[in-house]
């Protein structure tokens, strides 16, 4: 299946063509969501392996794209395991489910889950905005830097509290 059909708006198409012509290769990989708006177009789909994706020198666009994928898979794996462990802990009260739940509630895992959830939420919000208003793709790079500027403090402070086990009071 070398071709896959996407719906694309005129706006997104023109912006994408402009970005590709200006030599921003990462727009094609990092801004994958932008290719799938309204309207229709056929795009050639290059099937890259996971390791090929990691080696791809697409710059920051490719980096945030692969991180979005990895954090999404991380949330799916950890939260599904947590839900199933909670289910079997209550149904069977077996030691394995209890151990998994204790492991999930440990501080390092909580920090990792918080990293995944916050990164995936912010990155997803950026993709959402670029899809709703495709001209924003001209500021793709700047939006990525804005995303990191929000992410670092919003992740850092609660992660510090979680890692040190400090309770935050709200009277």
């Amino acid at each position: 299946m070398p071709f896959r059909t996407f719906r694309v708006s005129e706006d997104a198409l023109s912006v994408l063509a402009e970005l590709l012509h200006s030599g921003m290769r990462e727009a094609a990989v990092g801004g994958r969501g932008a290719m799938e708006t309204r309207g229709m177009v056929r795009l050639r789909l290059h099937r890259a392996s996971f390791w090929e994706t990691l080696r791809y020198q697409g710059g920051i666009g490719a980096l945030v794209w692969i991180l979005h994928r990895i954090t999404g898979l991380g949330i799916l794996l950890l939260v599904s395991v947590h839900v199933l462990a909670a289910f079997f802990m209550n149904a069977l009260d077996d030691p394995i489910s209890t151990a998994i739940t204790r492991w999930y509630e440990s501080r390092p895992v909580q920090v990792f889950v918080y990293f995944c959830v916050l990164y995936h939420a912010l990155s997803g919000l950026r993709v959402l905005l670029e899809d709703l208003y495709p001209p924003l793709l001209r500021y793709h790079r700047e939006l990525i830097w804005l995303q990191w500027a929000i992410f670092i403090p919003v992740f850092g402070l609660p992660a510090f509290f979680i890692a040190r086990g400090i309770a935050v009071s709200s009277p």
Binding site: T5, R7, S9, E10, R38, G39, M40
Partner: peptide, 25 residues
């Protein structure tokens, strides 16, 4: 709006669902 081939309807609705559910979450 240009049409260049058929589009899978379910794929589009799942794409839309991903965005709408993201807003909801």
């Amino acid at each position: 709006m240009r049409r260049l081939g058929e589009c899978n309807g379910l794929e589009y609705y799942l794409w839309l669902f991903t965005r709408l559910s993201a807003i909801l979450m």
